[in-house]
């Protein structure tokens, strides 16, 4: 996997925020290479800098030190080749589901006909066809999340940066969308960075699970998942899965003997 040049390369990235007179280190010398068509999941306690890392890759924040490269070039701003799903959904409240999904297609100049068709397709994919003309305020949290997913997918980005995208979904929808994500990942050969607080989800989806630690935010452990495993129910119930899950669980919850709290439901938007 390391033979090809990395699709995403995070090199000694440090990010500090100044809070009044103090500075706060959100990321401390984080390095991470993600190969083309790799699926990397990130887990870690709340506040360990997962979203910050994603924002840097999205081009919304700049590293204080170190650099982030995408396709070998330093990230200097957002780009439509990197689709982002925000932890807070970030739907435009004045636009309907359909208009939200079409937003990125309009800015990238997709002609109206095709826009319609593509929006239709992705709205159907996330199961919101009955709510295509509804405003976000009338949607449940899970439905908003699905709308945000459709909006990001519609632009057809080669990289997906997803911040707890399935956090607000019920178990059934979650499994369905996980399968769809794996499908578009393998069919369309996307590269995915997927943040989650769910250890099962992290192991199930990943080629590689990156476990982060907080204060300061850093990479604590990296767990490889054999790509030979097929992502199906049998895998979910297999002893190999259980072993990986235990390993990741241990890394997250028992970092250096200290019990860390996972970012759970409290980190979902309020």
């Amino acid at each position: 996997m390391t033979s090809t040049p990395a699709k995403i390369s995070v090199q000694h990235v440090t990010k500090t925020f100044s809070l009044g007179r103090q500075t706060f280190t959100a990321l401390d010398d984080v390095s991470l290479d993600i190969a083309h068509h790799e699926f990397v999941t990130v887990v870690g306690p709340s506040g360990c800098g997962k979203s910050t890392l994603m924002n840097i890759l999205a081009g919304l924040e700049t590293p204080t030190a170190g650099r982030a490269l995408v396709d070998g070039a330093p990230v200097s701003g957002p780009g439509p080749e990197r689709g982002v799903i925000f932890q807070q959904y970030a739907l435009f409240p004045w636009l309907t589901v359909r208009q939200n999904v079409e937003f990125g297609l309009r800015t990238t100049g997709v002609p109206k006909r095709e826009r319609r068709a593509r929006a239709e397709h992705f709205i159907e994919l996330v199961g919101l066809e009955r709510f295509a003309d509804a405003l976000p305020k009338t949607l449940s949290g899970g439905m908003r999340q699905r709308c945000a997913i459709a909006r990001a997918y519609a632009v057809d980005p080669s990289i997906l940066l997803m911040d707890e995208p399935f956090g607000a979904l019920d178990a059934l929808t979650r499994v369905k969308l996980q399968e769809q994500l794996l499908k578009t990942w393998s069919q369309d050969r996307r590269t995915v960075l997927f943040i989650t607080h769910d250890v099962d989800e992290a192991v199930f989806l990943a080629n590689r699970v990156v476990v982060m630690a907080a204060r300061p935010g850093r990479v604590y452990d990296v767990v490889e998942v054999d790509p030979a495993f097929r992502r199906d129910e049998a895998f979910r119930l297999s002893p190999e899965f259980a072993a990986l899950r235990n390993r990741v669980w241990h890394s997250v919850y028992h970092q250096e003997g200290r019990t860390a709290a996972l970012s759970g439901s409290h980190s979902s938007p309020s």
Partner: peptide, 24 residues
């Protein structure tokens, strides 16, 4: 966050102004 969402969807300053700042 809405401005960021527009930016990652490829919107430039003019689009952000017209399609995010004005309605918001």
């Amino acid at each position: 966050t809405l401005i960021n969402a527009a930016r990652v969807l490829g919107a430039g300053d003019a689009t952000i102004f017209a399609r995010v700042v004005v309605p918001a």
